[in-house]
Amino acid sequence: MTDLWQRARGRTAQAWPCLPLLAAGLIGTGPAAVFQPRAARPLDALAYALVIVAALAPAGRRRPGAALAVNGAAVAAYLAAGYPYGPILLTVPVAIYAVAAARPAGRAAVLVAANFGVLVVALFARTVQADGTASEVASDTLLWAAIALVALAAGVSVRVRREAVTGMRDAHARRVASEERLRMAQDLHDSIGHGLAAIAMQAGVALHVLDRDPDGARHALEAVRATSREALDGLRAELQRLRGDEPARHAPAPGLDALDGLAERVRAAGIQVSVTVEPGLRLAGAVDAAAFRIVREALTNVLRHAGAATARVTVTRDGPDLLVEVTDSGVGAAPAPATGLGIRGMRALAERHGGRLEAGPLPGGGFAVRARMPAEVTA
């Protein structure tokens, strides 16, 4: 019963736009006949039945080709029978527009041409019955050809515009999805990559001192355990975000106040790190988190590539800008610094907050990452 009710509601929703055509046909056909005394056949029940069929045919919007065929057959029968011209003719451009708006232009043109051919034959038959002339047939044919072309062009333009809007919407959705995947990849690279790099270095330290310094090895393994737990927490948070869990379940993004803990993990991996943060920086929350991520990724590169013994982190305020600098005493270069994912991610992060980032080897050896961002900008 529910399905029947839903189908009935759907058909009613499709039919109601045709009610003005139906009303015009039923009300206006009689008065229109008064001014056409040359009509070969007076109005009767069949004429009004054809008016009703032609008016309601465009309601079949799910199958506009069939609707056009039904409308064309009803109008052609009306004309061929010799009934007077009337509002039934208004249904023709409506049916043509519907099929042009719903079907590809080529297919719509074929359907409209076939429908137009049937109407031309009906017009010829009507003219013969009314003792009309060839010039009347020609003028009527040209008039309806122009009407059909206008209705066809209007429907095609609506379809093209609708497809363009749909294409833009789909392209925007794909771009948003791609940007979200890139953001997730960058977040995983920044957080999990740092953790894995620190774990690898800490494990190497533990193996190196295991025989001669068991306490040092124990300390390094404890650092491995702490770092691995933090990396797992970060991975779990990213997976929750990927599944679409509520943002409230995620821990807040770490900021510069977490630099001490970050430095301790790097020190446990065997690299001496000094951290200098100017007090009273008054940073926007997004800038604070971005600065921490830049420092974390720069130190991750130190762990992976630099072969350095020391690293220095400096965060200061320069007027309206925040300056972040990470230098090391390593070999002075990282693999593919201009195109590496880490440096590209740091540069994109700085640019996202209205800043810029430079990275490269130092003249006297070592490597430097320098970022400048507006301190008060909000992402």
Rank of each mutant, 00 (worst) to 15 (best):
P93Y: 03
A57C: 01
R174I: 09
Y78S: 10
V377N: 07
W16G: 10
V277I: 00
A24H: 01
A223V: 10
A105N: 04
T29G: 05
V53Q: 07
R344K: 11
A248H: 10
A23N: 01
T339A: 13
D44E: 05
V324H: 08
V160F: 08
D245K: 07
A134C: 11
D211Q: 14
A206W: 08
A336C: 04
A258L: 12
R175G: 15
L349P: 08
H305G: 08
A13D: 00
R236G: 08
F124K: 15
A105G: 04
A379T: 05
D187G: 12
A138E: 14
F124P: 15
H194E: 12
A57R: 01
T300E: 13
A368L: 04
G82I: 09
A269K: 14
G60N: 05
A223Y: 05
G10K: 02
S178T: 14
Q129D: 09
L90D: 02
G366D: 02
M184P: 11
A55F: 03
P17T: 03
P58A: 05
G204F: 04
Y78A: 09
G10T: 02
I192A: 06
V315R: 05
D245L: 05
E376H: 15
T12V: 00
A237I: 00
D233S: 04
L357W: 14
A268Y: 04
P17Q: 02
G280W: 00
G82V: 09
G193R: 14
L4V: 04
G72N: 12
N301V: 11
G270L: 04
G307H: 07
V110G: 12
G342K: 02
A248G: 11
T91Q: 03
R296K: 10
L22M: 06
M168I: 04
A173F: 09
G117N: 08
R344E: 11
C18F: 08
A289D: 12
G354H: 01
R370S: 10
H208K: 13
V94H: 03
D140H: 13
R9T: 01
T133N: 07
A203Q: 11
G106D: 01
Q36W: 15
A171L: 05
R183K: 05
T133K: 06
S329M: 00
V209L: 13
A40R: 01
A125C: 15
R107A: 09
I192T: 14
R103H: 03
A220H: 06
Q202L: 03
A379F: 03
A171C: 01
D44C: 09
M168C: 08
L50S: 02
A185V: 06
A32D: 15
H189G: 07
L119Y: 09
E163K: 08
A24V: 03
D321G: 10
R293N: 14
L323I: 09
Q272M: 09
A173H: 13
P214Q: 06
F35S: 06
T141E: 12
A113E: 04
R159N: 07
A379R: 03
T314M: 00
P247G: 07
E246H: 11
A15M: 05
H353C: 05
